[in-house]
Amino acid sequence: MEININIEIDGVKDFCNIFNTKDILNREDIVKLFNKKSYEKLVELFGKNVGLREKEQWIDLFYKAYEIYLDKSKHSNEKDPIASSIIKSVIWSLNNIEKLDSHINRIKRIIISQNFIKKALKYLPDINKDIEINIKLYIFMYNACVEGRVMLLDVSFATLFNDEQLEALLAHETHHYLKENIQKIEKGYEEVGRSLFALENEGMADMCSFEEISFIYEYFGFMKKDMVKVYLENPVRYIKEFSNKLRDRIVLNKDVKLHEYLMEEQIVHPLGYTMGKYIESVMGIDELKDCVGKPLDFILKYHYALKQETNEELLDRETIEKLMCIYGEDI
Results as ranks from 00 to 15, higher is better:
51 G>A: 05
16 C>G: 14
125 P>N: 02
275 M>D: 06
5 I>G: 03
208 C>W: 04
127 I>P: 00
184 K>L: 15
214 S>V: 03
172 H>Y: 10
62 F>D: 01
133 I>C: 02
241 E>S: 05
237 R>H: 13
103 H>I: 13
301 K>W: 04
61 L>F: 08
122 K>T: 03
275 M>H: 08
95 N>R: 15
92 W>H: 09
288 L>N: 00
91 I>A: 11
15 F>Q: 08
105 N>A: 09
175 H>C: 15
75 H>V: 12
199 L>S: 02
177 Y>I: 04
80 D>S: 13
317 R>V: 11
269 H>E: 05
85 S>G: 15
118 K>P: 05
101 D>I: 06
66 Y>V: 00
177 Y>W: 05
294 K>L: 04
142 Y>V: 11
235 P>S: 04
28 E>L: 11
177 Y>M: 04
83 A>F: 14
36 K>F: 03
59 I>Q: 14
158 A>T: 15
34 F>D: 00
123 Y>L: 00
44 E>G: 12
7 I>K: 14
101 D>F: 12
315 L>P: 08
282 V>N: 01
316 D>Y: 07
109 R>S: 14
240 K>I: 06
175 H>D: 13
112 I>P: 00
312 E>R: 14
134 N>A: 12
55 K>E: 07
156 S>Q: 14
32 K>D: 08
228 V>W: 01
34 F>N: 11
293 G>N: 03
69 Y>W: 06
17 N>M: 07
45 L>G: 13
313 E>Y: 15
270 P>M: 08
31 V>H: 06
140 F>D: 15
213 I>E: 03
